[in-house]
Design a protein around this nucleic acid. Sequence first.
DNA 1: CTTATTACCTGGCAGC
DNA 2: TGCTGCCAGGTAATAA
Length: 313
Amino acid sequence: VSEVPELPEVETIRRIVSAKARGRRVISVTVHDPKFIQDLSAADFSARLTGKTLTDVARRGKYLVLTFAADAAAGPDAERCRLVAHLMMAGRLIVCPPGEPIVKHTHVVFGLDNGLELRYIDLRHFGRLALMDGGEAGTGRADATGAARAGRAGAGAAPRPAEPTLIRGLRALGVEPLSDDFTVVALSSLLARRKGRIKAVLLDQRLVAGIGNIYADEVLFMAGIHPRRTGDSLAPAEVKRLHGAIRAVLAQAIEHRGTTILTYVDGEGRRGEFAGLLQVYQKHGAACPRCGTAIVRAEVAGRGTHFCPRCQR
DNA sequence: CTTATTACCTGGCAGC
DNA sequence: TGCTGCCAGGTAATAA
């Protein structure tokens, strides 16, 4: 049982995969269901990764980006590639011994040279994997070299092959909320630009990357802001509170390894412990921890939304 | 350009 | 008990 992976859960998975699998060489790739790999056959996917070494495990918003490189012996120009993964609602990446039973909905298994396996599991079948060339800078916004390259390629010639949607989503991501780029001023300018409910603004990955339904509700509670407020209606003091709440909630959730996500590693399951610290998410009917008023659940911006009608204005 | 709506998919659960 | 039907959730495609 696991909650939907948002930034803190994906960061927790990133740390575990990095600790257990980084530096390991891929000795086999088994694709049980090719639909999870975008725009590439299972055979090509396997061929491009087999024999390469996992050199880096990064996270951007809710995306994981695994960099693979050919062995150093192959020379400095050796091929590199990046595996981009989005776990969506129910995806999991686990590292475990090969003897562990292959559970239902295990879709891709990477055999590693330390005897462990990296497994992609997704019981709701919404997540996807894609490959991206290693030479591309890739994970940032407004990549100047990428834009220039695209511009030249597009001039007068046939349109370049469509990129997997997963990679387009990755490129379109907004600011990383725990980075130095995410300032009060940056948030303020986003809010001035984007119309609509603050809840919808927080969930828009093109503005701030990594916040999903759980943490949107928790952030708005901490900031004392009603989810139906519009972004451009917030006073400067409220924007500052919102900024602080985004960083505090996400950082605290990472410290507790996320919300009820079961990160199965090396024979030991470790449960994220942030679930016990949730203040409003799925607490409707319970007393607000601040004022005692019953927490309300309502639909805001098309999402189930939980808030305190007294504390959040 | 922006913003709203819908499809995708399965397990879990309410209702009968 | 066993069946039906409906819902959550994030993203991209489609609609307006």
